[in-house]
Design a protein around this nucleic acid. Structure first.
Lengths: 192, 192
DNA sequence: CTGTTTATTGATTGACGAGTCAATTAAAGA
DNA sequence: TCTTTAATTGACTCGTCAATCAATAAACAG
């Protein structure tokens, strides 16, 4: 019973299913059939709309990255003071929608995918570049020429927190992670 | 032409080949055949000594973790002053033998493997626990009751540096990473 | 109505890869 | 010398899975 205009709905459902499936399995070794089943369609349809498994994976990665960027950008839009902008970046990074355990699990898998897939590597570079650029512009007024090094450390802290929260047993706690990172940055800034 | 006592030699060669293969491919999706070929034996022999692919992977993970631990422990043995012990931990973490690009690539893959393999998760917990315990004992005299939070941040920084160096283009620079982490910790400690 | 386009799937193909096994060679021991 | 044991492999089996395709059904255009 084909209704028209299904494409965007199916795509979205398949992408959500992909993230959920990867999150549940903890690996990219998920079959197209399982993803499709979770989305309520046949595996043939997944191929029809995406072309191949790689394309599905990359679409899911783009989706995660876009959600992440949206969350940060939204918070950043309202702030002008440097420290407030820093808070916006960090808190956006650990916002509940990004920091759900299946999303973090998928995130880690996409991170590692960048080691073997050029397109995934490109997406990762875009993310990493934007994060550093955001951090740098917020830190410049606060830290002057130490801003570059501080931005790098902040990026390390954020990624490290993701990695550890992703592997820690129990539900991840974004608030605690954000507090950690901000406290570390605050301490480094005050001790100038 | 079977010589006796080949087992340890073959095991070692297969483990090295596994790390090299994973490092080169950037994924755990490497075939037993390729690993065996690199080690100069047949795939049947790999199964003979290890049992299955999972066992090979876990053996390689243990090997990486053991090398890491050795490097840290060796440096730690000579030091008694708190800050020197901290340096030992951090510098050991980024020692050239641990921080070769194929090893880091394998490391990241093993990290993610812990999301789906209980045994890999156990190994990771052991590593994470020991790292924190080492950091904590070095930081306690320097930071008192802030030591716990600081140890956590240091762990985030180290893992974050691994993650970023692993994905950065070009050869990883362990010295720079170590300096980064130590400088961050020093700044936090001085601004008490 | 009729033909075209969109949505959808069941069935099939083809490849690839983990794990098994029987057979071979040579060293060690009796 | 005979036999037991370790080392080693080529060939084979069995599943699984990505990808394809032909077929069906509904909406829509003219």
């Amino acid at each position: 019973m084909p209704k028209l205009g299904m494409e965007p709905i199916r795509r979205a459902a398949l992408i959500d299913a992909t993230i959920a499936e990867i999150g549940a399995a903890g690996t990219l070794d998920v079959t197209v059939s399982r993803i499709a089943r979770r989305a309520g369609v046949s595996s043939a349809l997944a191929h029809h709309y995406f072309g191949g498994k790689d394309d599905i994976l990359l679409a899911a990665m783009r989706h995660v990255l876009r959600d992440y960027g949206r969350e940060v950008t939204r918070r950043l839009g309202r702030q002008t003071a440097p420290w407030a902008r820093l808070e916006a970046i960090v808190e956006g990074s650990f916002a509940p929608s990004n920091f759900r355990s299946d999303v973090v699990s998928a995130w880690l898998n996409f991170y590692v995918l960048a080691l073997s897939s050029p397109e995934a590597a490109r997406l990762h570079r875009v993310y990493a570049g934007r994060l550093r650029s955001n951090l740098l512009s917020a830190l410049r007024p606060l830290a002057g020429d130490r801003a570059l090094a501080l931005a790098e450390r902040a990026a390390f802290l954020i990624d490290g927190a993701y990695l550890n929260q992703g592997l820690a047993p129990g539900a991840p706690d974004g608030e605690a992670a954000a507090r950690h990172v901000l406290q570390a940055l605050g301490a480094e800034l005050s001790g100038s």
